[in-house]
C-alpha cells in the first residue's frame, strides 16, 4: 500500500521534533552561560546583560519550535499534550499557593522556590504525557 503523503508527515514530525530538541539544547546552553558566565568567565555586567538577552532570544526560538512541533502532531497526540499541560498547570497553581502559604506563615524555610517549581513542572508534565500514552494505548 502506497500513499503519496505517508513519508511526508512522518518526516515532518521527525524534523520538527529534532528542531525542538536543538532549540531546547541551545536554550539550556545559553541559560547555563548567562548563569555561570558571570561567576567563572567574565566580570563585566555588560556581557552578563548580553548573555541574558541572547538567552531570551533563543527562548523565543524554542517557543516557536515547540509550537511548530505541536502543530504537526496528530489529534490524539495533541490531546495527550493538552491534558498533560492542563495537569501541569493545575499542579503548579496548587503547589505555588502552598509555597506562598508556607513562606507567609514561615512554617518552613523554603529556598530556591523557582527552581523547585521548574522541577515540579517538568516532572508533572512527564507524568501527564506518560499517563496519556497509557490511557490511549
Amino acid at each position: 500500500m502506497t500513499q503519496p503523503n505517508q513519508d511526508n508527515w512522518q518526516n515532518k514530525v521527525k524534523s520538527n521534533t529534532l528542531k525542538m530538541a536543538y532549540w531546547t539544547g541551545a536554550w539550556l546552553m545559553t541559560l547555563a552561560l548567562a548563569t555561570f558566565g558571570p561567576v567563572f568567565l567574565w566580570q563585566q555586567p555588560t556581557i552578563s546583560h548580553a548573555a541574558t538577552i541572547v538567552n531570551l532570544l533563543v527562548g523565543i526560538g524554542m517557543l516557536v519550535a515547540n509550537h511548530k512541533h505541536l502543530q504537526v502532531q496528530d489529534e490524539l497526540q495533541q490531546k495527550i499534550q493538552l491534558e498533560a499541560m492542563a495537569l501541569t498547570l493545575g499542579v503548579v497553581v496548587i503547589v505555588s499557593m502552598a509555597y506562598a502559604t508556607i513562606q507567609g506563615d514561615q512554617l518552613l524555610n523554603v529556598k530556591d522556590t523557582l527552581s523547585n517549581l521548574m522541577f515540579i513542572i517538568g516532572i508533572t508534565y512527564l507524568i501527564g504525557v506518560f499517563m496519556g500514552r497509557r490511557k490511549y494505548q
Binding site: 500500500m1 500513499q3 503523503n5 505517508q6 513519508d7 511526508n8 508527515w9 512522518q10 496528530d74 489529534e75 490524539l76 497526540q77 490531546k79 500514552r133 490511557k135 490511549y136 494505548q137
Partner: peptide, 19 residues
C-alpha cells in the same frame, strides 16, 4: 496510520473506541 497521516497509536485508539 501512514495513509491517514496519524500515529499508529491513534489508529489503535480509534479502533478500540478509546478515542
Amino acid at each position: 496510520a501512514n495513509a491517514l497521516e496519524v500515529s499508529r497509536q491513534t489508529v489503535n485508539a480509534i479502533e478500540t473506541g478509546k478515542f
